[in-house]
Design a protein around this nucleic acid. Structure first.
Lengths: 155, 155
DNA sequence: ATTTACGGCACTGAATTGGTCCGATATGGT
DNA sequence: ACCATATCGGACCAATTCAGTGCCGTAAAT
């Protein structure tokens, strides 16, 4: 269904919560789990991954927890997705040369790369800071297009 | 990995081949399989699905085959993906209300919808006709952005 | 009638996903 | 010193999805 995995989604929501908290706030897995109404093991797992990806910094021991390494404005959704799911590649070939053995014969590679780039850009234009204040005043520039809101049939 | 399934990819490649053939050309599963160097069962399966999705018209019997229902210019990649994988929904909630039970508490829905729309738009802007002539002279308007080609770290 | 080709479906093995659990280690407090 | 609280790094598992195959029925051309 062309979707981001549920776990990645959790990860992003968790990060958004860090971004919404006071700057440099330190939060434990337990706190996050309670706040998000998600099972602790899941939250724990995701926070670990985010830490090992370098997006969160971990503080061990009692009174430990996690903290954002960078300011929310400097972390893009694209980056988070890449950290949790690997390269943003809609199809094999866009992950780099050598991934698809049809490479030579394939006639649609170039358009695919374009599409992939467009998706990448869309994800790159939204930062954690944008997610932290979802009732945005200023529209997310470059994402909004001129089509009417209702004119997007999704299925 | 945020990717389109391999089968869907096949489907798109097959459709592109139809688009590249003379207008209204009729091609059989066997021919397509040979031309694409893909196993016949797979090609057959995808063509069936594309036909039942209404993108191809099937002609049964000896000398049968498939044919594009619409002109390539009128078929978008978004449409094909939706036909083969269902709604283009990066995360549960963007597939419509009621899909995610976190709906009430979730703070990032609105930005997600924006992102999803952007991806949708990107896929909607490329038509089968664009895929059929991949060595494009004119750039695919609206997809290209100003960033330098090399400045797209994918991983 | 025979051959060619689609239609529908069932089925399989493999990989991925979503989620749990555990022992080890680090830290703060008493 | 000891204990409670946390993260760390795994392994682990069930359920789903993915990718691919096969079969039987039906339609059309010769």
């Amino acid at each position: 269904m062309l979707r981001i995995s549920k776990l990645t989604d959790y990860g992003i929501v968790l990060l958004a919560r860090f971004a919404a908290a006071p700057r440099d706030a330190q939060l434990s897995a337990r706190e996050m789990a309670e706040a998000s109404a998600l099972p602790l093991p899941v939250v724990s797992k995701m926070l670990k991954e985010l830490a090992s990806a370098g997006l969160l910094e971990s503080l061990r021991g009692a009174k430990g927890g996690y903290r954002l390494v960078r300011v929310p404005e400097a972390i893009t959704v694209a980056e988070i997705v890449r950290a949790l799911e690997g390269p943003i590649a809609l199809m094999e070939c866009t992950a780099g040369p050598g991934h698809c053995e049809q490479e030579a014969r394939c006639t649609v590679q170039e358009p695919w790369h374009r599409i992939n780039r467009a998706v990448n850009d869309a994800l790159s234009r939204v930062t954690l800071a944008d997610l932290a204040r979802p009732l945005v005043a200023k529209p997310l520039l470059g994402i909004e297009n001129s089509a009417a809101p209702a004119s997007h049939p999704n299925n």
